[in-house]
Structure formats: structure tokens, C-alpha cells
Nucleic acid binder design. Structure first.
Lengths: 107, 107
DNA sequence: TATATAGTTTATATATTTGTGAACTAATAA
DNA sequence: TTATTAGTTCACAAATATATAAACTATATA
């Protein structure tokens, strides 16, 4: 019941997965590196909003950026991020399945 | 740029990982099923707070509960949850490593 | 040098999450 | 039946996260 610090850091990194836009970005970047403008075109919304989400993801260590002329290219820091994300999607899908089943049985 | 709904659901499940107490619970339940009181003893804090976190996790489909007399037993719905969590921890660890390296180089 | 492009940063209003304690409920035990 | 145990639910205050728009910055181009 000591050193909760690791749980705080761990939760903080996981928080990066807890927003629809950020999930969409991770999904896209699973295919490789993309420029800011391409990501924005893909997700829609305001550039300032996207910029903030991306830099939060970089700060938490799940994305990296590099400059290429006047563009910025974003990528996942590791395939592990994509894998973790995919696992959670599978958990979601089976939960939805179970709910559907439960609904069918009560009718 | 359509059906963002899946991203919302996906993010919502991932949000379950985004809190220190919930990470601590997932870590514990990686070892198997535990009773509410044992979890509380392990994490500390108020029972009402733990109860709310646990039921949110059940609602999102990452934990399941069952009754055993007057106790309630909680478990992960799938090993996938533990694996996703472990992957994100690895991402955290290598980020911390990289930061340490960066600090060393600038000194 | 002046302009345009490609984002970033900042300020702020709103929405969501979290922690706390009191009240409540279901199952068992006396 | 009455307590007791083992949690859950509720209401509310405080803390965090999010979206938006305006201002700003760095690089490249004319």
C-alpha cells in the first residue's frame, strides 16, 4: 500500500488512450507516419484542438514528432501502443457481444 | 471522417485504464479473482470510492463481479485487459528511459 | 524583406471526473 | 425478528479535461 507513484504515471500514460480523437489518431498512425495536415484532414475539427491533443500524446510518450521543412510528422513511439489499443478494442467488442446476448435472453 | 461512434466507445473503454486506483486494481486482479474487502485492504481509501470505481469498470466491460454469500468477487473479464495494461506500462518505462538519456546528454 | 504556410500557445468557458460522507440495501447471523 | 456485515447509491464540492478562438512563431517562398 505504498509507492502509488508508479500507478499515477501508468494511469497518466493510459489516459492518452481515453479520448475519441486520440484513439482515431492512434488508429491512423498504426499505418505509419503522417503529417499534421493529413491527420487533421482525416479527423476533422480545429487545428488548435488537434495540435493540443497531439502534443499531449508526445508529452506522455506515445507519439513522437519530427520536422520536415515546414511540416511536422507524427508517429507512434512503439507498435506496443497500437497493440494495447487493439486489445482494448477486442475487449470492447466482446463486451458489446455479451450485452447483445443478454438482451436477447431477456426478451 | 464518418462513424466516430466506434472511437467514442473505444475511448470510453480505454478511460477505464486512466486512473491510478483503477490501474492498481487491474494489477491486483491480474493474479486472479479478489473480494471487495481484499481489494480495499490492498488499495486503501474509502469503500464508497472503491465501489464506484469498480462498478464503472464493470459497466465498461473490463471487470466482472459475482456474489458469494455476502461478499462480492471481482475479476478481469479477460487477460487482454492485463496485457494491454502491461504494454502501456512498457511504453511508460521506455519513455522514462529516453527522458533520462536526454537529461544526461544535456548536462 | 514582406508574405504565406503550418502549426503552436494562450486564455477562457464548459463539461466531465473524482472524492467524500451520509443514507440506503441485501444477505447472513443472533 | 433484530442486528450486523458488506457493500452500493446518492448528493455535492473540488479538481481535471476539453473545445474554441485569437494571438503568436518558425520556416519557406516571392
Amino acid at each position: 500500500m505504498q509507492d502509488k507513484r508508479i500507478y499515477e504515471l501508468h494511469a497518466d500514460v493510459c489516459k492518452a488512450l481515453g479520448h475519441p480523437l486520440r484513439i482515431e489518431v492512434i488508429d491512423l498512425l498504426s499505418n505509419g507516419e503522417y503529417g499534421f495536415t493529413d491527420i487533421l484532414e482525416h479527423t476533422g475539427g480545429l487545428k488548435s484542438n488537434l495540435s493540443q491533443h497531439l502534443s499531449a500524446m508526445v508529452r506522455k510518450g506515445i507519439l513522437r514528432v519530427r520536422r520536415d521543412g515546414k511540416n511536422r510528422l507524427y508517429a507512434l513511439t512503439s507498435r506496443k501502443v497500437a497493440r494495447a489499443c487493439a486489445l482494448m478494442r477486442e475487449v470492447l467488442v466482446s463486451h458489446i457481444e455479451k450485452q447483445r446476448m443478454a438482451l436477447m435472453n431477456e426478451k
